[in-house]
């Protein structure tokens, strides 16, 4: 009996996970966390929080879009480190991401919940040639479900 229960819980077909064609949220988090060790040796001084806007390029690598108010030295450091950080190439468009870098008691952290800008996908199966507002009107009429799929 217990064998049947335990074997029933065994993954039957683990092969076939999607290939890494696009950046998932997990992968985006890993890219951002990969920058943390470098930041540690770079920033100093008083505690601060600063917003950072980045583009994870489809060709690989990161382009810094904007860095919030911070000292010139810290700005240069953040710019250099993020620009030099590794991010894999992918089949999507350049992916815009916003995150926050924190310095607390000499320890640097990057937000675990970056804001990822994804396109509006819905409404699906209906050809709507208008702009985002036209698509949003259709999605909202249907019930808003697709409108949340950004």
């Amino acid at each position: 009996m217990i064998w049947a229960i335990l074997l029933g819980a065994t993954p039957l077909d683990p092969v076939g996970a999607p290939l890494d064609f696009y950046l998932t949220d997990h992968k985006i988090g890993a890219v951002l966390q990969g920058v943390v060790p470098g930041l540690q040796s770079c920033v100093g001084g008083k505690d601060f929080s600063v917003g950072v806007g980045l583009a994870l390029l489809s060709t690989g690598g990161i382009k810094v879009r904007q860095i919030g108010p911070v000292s010139a030295a810290n700005r240069a450091c953040l710019d250099t480190l993020f620009s030099a950080a590794e991010s894999p190439s992918h089949h999507g468009e350049d992916l815009e991401v916003e995150t926050t870098v924190y310095l607390r008691d000499g320890v640097v952290l990057v937000s675990a919940s970056p804001r990822v800008f994804r396109r509006l996908v819905g409404p699906l199966m209906l050809f709507v040639s208008g702009d985002a507002d036209a698509r949003l009107r259709v999605a909202e009429y249907l019930g808003g479900g697709d409108a949340r799929e950004r």
Partner: peptide, 15 residues
Amino acid sequence: TVTVQGESGQLQQVQ
């Protein structure tokens, strides 16, 4: 003919 039924409305389109 596609019919999409959402939580608050239904729409159709001939394709």
